[in-house]
């Protein structure tokens, strides 16, 4: 049984269930060029048939290199992109069935997002107070200036800022403080699910530690569920319960963090783990796998990883592997299915 085929029971415990999610982008040349030069329409399959579920209070991370589609998944879930196919269920409610802003508002209130770039995610012309109060006003959660004032002060305190910081403008803050403001805004509408799109990749390490600690504390205190998007495996290791490794719009492997990091199965996961610098082994000489991520516009046939894979055979070049159950999750690899996978050296 694959994840994609897993039946959605009526008493589904998952906070969020993504089923066969697809998002294609039309990257064709302009209409006139297509007509005059006889070029075909071109689709970029940024996300191609992704399924996963996140249990309440847990963190699921999506990792992968740039262009693998992880941010597109995040943007589909929060409604910035309309999916080209598949479904997104929030506590069993299919988001696609909610038409119009009014119908979506109750779900949107509970599902917020933290963005990557703390310098672009806050409107430079707004005071911090108004930035954080925006969701409260938009969802009409509180009435009256006094009540909103108290709530914003509380939120600022929750993320480690002072109430008087609300009077300032974003440019008066450092990157880490801005990310705290961004978190306060995301928390303002009392959400229980946060999509975090590379929340620390623009920050310095010492500040990254502050933000990661804050996010973990908030998760514990408020019972938040996280979808965490990152390219940094050590951050993902620190944050996640479940990890999905994405490659060219598809999930290569999705397993519990403990299983995936101790015994990675997909050759791509192994490659990624191999690239993590190990501070314990100074000057380690590594033999990194050659090659680069191919263009997602014309992905390789069969398993899209086969041109870089040391285990690729004829079947890998021809037939696309589906996710198959394995220890602690699922992996999409013919070599694993056929038992051709050499044991992981670290295990």
């Amino acid at each position: 049984m694959t994840i994609a085929a897993a039946p959605t029971t009526p008493h589904d415990s998952a906070k969020l269930r993504v089923h066969g999610l697809k998002r294609y982008f039309d990257v064709s040349a302009p209409w006139l060029n297509r007509v005059l030069e006889g070029r075909k329409r071109q689709l970029l399959k940024a996300v191609d048939d992704i399924s996963f579920a996140i249990e309440p209070g847990k963190t699921l991370s999506l990792v992968g290199e740039s262009g693998c589609g992880k941010s597109t998944v995040a943007r589909c879930i929060v409604g910035l992109y309309r999916p080209s196919g598949g479904s997104i269920d929030f506590e069993g409610v299919d988001l696609a069935t909610l038409r119009g802003r009014a119908a979506q508002a109750p779900i949107r209130r509970r599902m917020q997002m933290i963005f990557q770039d703390p310098f672009a995610s806050l409107n430079p012309r707004w005071r911090v107070f108004d930035i954080i109060a925006e969701p409260i006003r938009a969802f009409r959660l509180l009435r009256g200036a006094g009540a909103i004032q108290r709530r914003v002060d509380e939120l600022l305190g929750q993320v480690g800022l002072a109430a008087r910081d609300g009077e300032k403008y974003p440019h008066e803050f450092s990157g880490g403080q801005r990310q705290r403001i961004s978190i306060a805004r995301a928390l303002a509408s009392n959400p229980d699910f946060l999509v975090c799109d590379e929340p620390t990749s623009a920050l310095d390490v010492s500040v990254q530690a502050q933000i990661l600690n804050l996010m973990k504390e908030l998760q514990r205190e408020l019972g938040l569920t996280y979808l965490f998007i990152s390219h940094d495996l050590s951050v993902v290791y620190h944050m996640s319960d479940t990890v999905g490794v994405m490659y060219l719009g598809r999930l290569a492997e999705i397993r519990s963090a403990a299983d995936l990091f101790s015994e990675p199965q997909h050759p791509y996961t192994r490659l990624l783990l191999e690239t993590i610098p190990d501070l314990d082994v100074i000057g380690r000489h590594r033999e990194p796998l050659a090659g680069e991520v191919p263009s997602p516009i014309n992905p390789p046939s069969g398993c899209t990883f086969h041109p870089r894979c040391p285990l690729a055979n004829e079947r890998c070049r021809a037939e696309r592997p589906e996710l198959q159950p394995t220890a602690g999750g699922f992996v999409a690899c013919h070599a694993v299915a056929e038992g051709r996978l050499p044991p992981h050296p670290a295990s």
């Binding site: 409604g79 802003r101 508002a105 917020q112 938009a138």
Partner: peptide
């Protein structure tokens, strides 16, 4: 395309 506009869209601002 800046994230502060996307943040407003996520909130569902008109």
């Amino acid at each position: 395309n800046k994230e502060y506009v996307q943040a407003a869209r996520v909130i569902g601002i008109h």
